[in-house]
Amino acid sequence: MAKYRQVQVAFWQDNFVLDLTPEEKYFYLYLMTNPKATQIGIYELPLKVIEMETGYNRETVEKLIARFEDYGKIVYSQDTKEIMITNWIKHNWNSSQKVISRVDTELRGVKDKSFIQKYLIQVLEVEENQEKIQYLYGMDTVSIDYGYKDKEKEKDKDKEKDKDNENDNESDQEKERVGVVFDKYVELGFGTINAFKAEQITEWLKIFEPDVVIKSLEVASNNNKATMNYVNGILNNWKQRDLTTLEKVEAEEKRKQVEQLKPSYQQRRREQPGEVAPSWLKDEDKPKPDKPSGPVKTAAEDPEIQKMIADFRKG
């Protein structure tokens, strides 16, 4: 946890802040700089703690939280007593290994899983728009960009604005595709999605449609192998066999089922009716006469043979 937080002086000239009441300005600064604030902007903050640290009573605290939720600046979980500052990552993201490691550690401690999913979706958006991120301070500071830039930067921003608007719909659709898979991942018991797993799933979604990736999750879960490594093995196999659509995957499953129902060659031989055996095989099956037992007699010892020889000589 950081020992201090730093806020840009431009905070006080921001249009949103200028419209706030003194009470709201104080509360907004408190949310960004209180001792429980984290690198990811998601942290546990019970209402009782807010009362003690701000001096407000419960009714005022609840009204302020509801008001900032309406402004779209925070989300508060009544179940886990956690708060999420919604635009935190846009002004505090850094892809350095030090920051990634800390983010991963803090995400593991988040209790409200919906906060994790929202955060990871924002990570994907930030990573795809690196040119819009300014790393003005270290990882333990709060850098808030309220739109006060140099004139040249403002001009460049205006030129890009139209292009960004054209991509808004595609970006929203992509978030929805990723979010559906993330939800299924958690629902099927694979556990919490960290930054590394989120990146793996996103890479697979560049090859497969969401329903195919979800199918791989279901196959792994049904086989009691709810791990990302097992899912990677399934998807690699499907990729090599060009099973890139749900129709192809289901067709292959049906083909395997049909193959399993077909009888083997030995079964077909046994079940084939009316087969006629060859005559030589039948002769071999006939019982052969027993051979005479005892020693074999020679011609000189056999009286019958001697008689036949004598008759032959007489002519």
Rank of each mutant, 00 (worst) to 15 (best):
K3L: 13
Q8W: 05
A10V: 09
W12T: 11
V17H: 07
E24I: 00
E24L: 01
E24T: 06
Y26H: 07
T38P: 10
E44Y: 11
E44K: 15
P46D: 07
L47M: 12
T54A: 06
T54V: 05
N57I: 08
V61H: 11
E62W: 06
E62Y: 01
F68D: 08
F68K: 04
D70T: 14
Y71Q: 06
Y76T: 02
M84T: 01
T86I: 13
N94E: 10
S95M: 04
Q97F: 04
D104G: 02
E106K: 07
K111M: 09
K111R: 07
F115R: 02
Y119K: 09
I121E: 09
E125F: 14
Q134C: 06
Y137R: 15
M139D: 14
Y146K: 00
K149V: 10
K155I: 15
K155R: 09
D158H: 09
D162Y: 13
E170F: 07
S171H: 04
E176V: 08
G179M: 14
V181E: 04
G189K: 05
F190P: 02
G191Y: 02
T192G: 02
F196I: 04
A198T: 07
W204H: 06
I207Q: 03
V212E: 01
V212C: 08
V213L: 04
I214G: 08
L217G: 04
L217D: 10
L217A: 08
V219Y: 07
S221N: 04
N224P: 02
G233N: 12
L235K: 02
N237K: 10
W238E: 04
V249T: 12
A251F: 07
K256I: 13
Q257F: 11
Q257D: 15
V258I: 11
Y265I: 12
E271D: 15
Q272N: 12
P273W: 05
V276P: 00
W280F: 15
D283S: 03
K291W: 13
V296E: 10
V296N: 02
A299H: 05
A299S: 12
E304G: 07
A310D: 14
D311T: 08
